[in-house]
């Protein structure tokens, strides 16, 4: 048994978080990956033991999900989204370039053990296409050059910062957070950035808001009312109105045309 007492304790802790212990299996497998570098046979046995199920059952779960790796992983996991939208926007080319630059195929690790490259499915960041991930942190709007620079820095052990996220640690440290343990990096990175803010910024520029939230005689506190008052004050109503006036008319008219 190679797992440390600490890890054993944490596996039990995860199992204790749920009304039915077996619900902890996915998090436990993430923790095994963090501790062991992949889902090991030992790890499978231990999970089975703790949950009172068979190793075959655990193994059946581990092989179902793509995030679980049955082979040793590189220090960093690099994912390139090649789902349709990213692929078209350049993801396919980025993936090809990285493969030849790193001299690996899909799901393979560089000789120096630093990087495992994998093409991934849509990672819910299509507005930032083409998207790459490192240890499941976002690297937005990549080009072949920027992607190569990131992997070179990773291989050189230089610090790398996610576009919307924290400083890159390692795949194993990431897996620990995913499993259920905080790492103190929550306050790194922005609230939102880039494309996420497109509509927000346009609304702010034009003074557009939703109807006031606490209008109907609520117990609204000072800060809130004040903030809303400010928003209203900012509003450039005149310019705005013209634009809105046009739109619903369009809408109503076109609505009938099929």
């Amino acid at each position: 048994m190679t797992l440390s007492d600490v890890t054993m304790g944490e596996l039990h802790e995860l199992a204790g978080r749920y009304p039915h212990a077996r619900s902890a299996l996915l998090p436990m497998l993430h923790l095994i990956q963090s501790a062991e570098g992949h889902v090991t046979n030992d790890g499978i046995e231990v999970c089975a033991d703790i949950l009172g199920i068979t190793a075959a059952e655990v193994s059946g779960v581990a092989t179902f999900y793509t995030m679980y790796k049955r082979r040793p992983m590189g220090e960093h996991h690099v994912g390139v989204c090649t789902n349709t939208l990213c692929a078209v926007m350049g993801g396919d080319l980025i993936f090809e370039r990285l493969k030849s630059h790193l001299d690996v195929g899909n799901d393979e690790t560089t000789d120096d053990g630093r990087v495992t490259l994998e093409h991934i499915e849509c990672n819910a960041a299509c507005d930032f296409a083409p998207v790459m991930t490192v240890n499941w942190e976002f690297f937005d709007q990549q080009t072949p050059e920027s992607a190569i620079e990131v992997v070179d820095r990773l291989r050189a052990g230089e610090p790398v910062q996610a576009t919307r996220g924290a400083t890159i640690t390692s795949w194993r440290e990431a897996e620990r957070v995913i499993a259920g343990f905080e790492d103190g990096r929550v306050d790194e990175g922005p609230t939102a950035a880039g494309a996420s803010l497109a509509g927000f910024e346009i609304a702010r520029e034009r003074g557009w808001t939703a109807p006031s939230l606490d209008a109907e005689g609520s117990t609204a506190g000072v800060a809130d009312t004040k903030q809303e008052a400010e928003e209203q004050a900012d509003t450039t109503r005149a310019g705005t109105e013209t634009l809105i006036e046009e739109s619903p008319a369009d809408t109503a008219e076109e609505g009938n045309d099929d």
Partner: peptide, 21 residues
Amino acid sequence: MTDLLTPVLTADWGTDRAWTL
């Protein structure tokens, strides 16, 4: 008449540290 964009869910996305309590 409502505005064309109506940030409610996204209203605080431009706020620094909006993720904190």
